[in-house]
């Protein structure tokens, strides 16, 4: 009896350790979004500092990088120059769009004036667009193909390598 109890204990402990190991081995920035493989939720939001509306459907036919960010988010400051530089570099093959939520318009404008920009930034006032995209915390970046389907999502600050790697998934081969 004692031997069988020990055996059962070992089996249960091994299963728990395996589950723990699998969980710890995952990269938290690579949490798969249920939206990957699905059409990107459609929105048309006001461009910051203007009365111009930017409609996501106007980007169809060209890959689109949608970056959710805010001025109070430290990692967003880090990734901003990378996004601006790559938006210029890939201007012919992909579009970039910034979506700011939980922020103040004057702060966004001041940030963009000081640090520059190479693509439009829209304001998600009530955070409804962020909720529809499943945004938990900023920055989060979505890679949408020319047909308007979400192909990849990255949680956390963007690096040139991560950006390039994900852009390859949406750019025409």
């Amino acid at each position: 009896m004692n031997r069988s109890v020990l055996l059962i204990g070992i089996v249960i402990a091994a299963a728990l350790v395996a589950i723990l190991f699998m969980g710890l081995g995952k990269n938290p920035a690579e949490i798969r979004s249920p939206l990957v493989g699905k059409p990107a939720p459609v929105f048309a939001l006001r461009e910051v500092g203007t009365n111009r509306t930017v409609d996501i459907t106007q980007y169809r036919g060209k890959p689109l990088v949608v970056n959710f960010w805010a001025t109070w988010c430290g990692p967003c400051w880090e990734e901003h120059p990378i996004l601006v530089a790559n938006a210029r570099m890939y201007a012919d093959s992909a579009s970039f769009l910034g979506v700011v939520f939980q922020d103040k318009e004057d702060k966004i404008l001041s940030f963009l004036q000081q640090r520059g920009s190479s693509y439009p930034t829209v304001v998600d006032d009530a955070g409804k667009t962020a909720i529809a995209y499943g945004v938990g915390g900023v920055p989060e970046t979505y890679f949408i193909d020319a047909q308007g389907v979400i192909v990849a999502k990255h949680n956390g600050p963007m690096t040139p390598d991560i950006l390039r790697e994900n852009l390859q998934k949406v750019l025409p081969q």
Binding site: V42, F43, A44, R46, N51, K128, A132
Partner: peptide, 14 residues
């Protein structure tokens, strides 16, 4: 006009 054009993702889409 702007308010008329603004559109947030609708739950009906999901």
């Amino acid at each position: 006009l702007l308010l008329f054009q603004l559109k947030v993702p609708d739950a009906a889409q999901f």
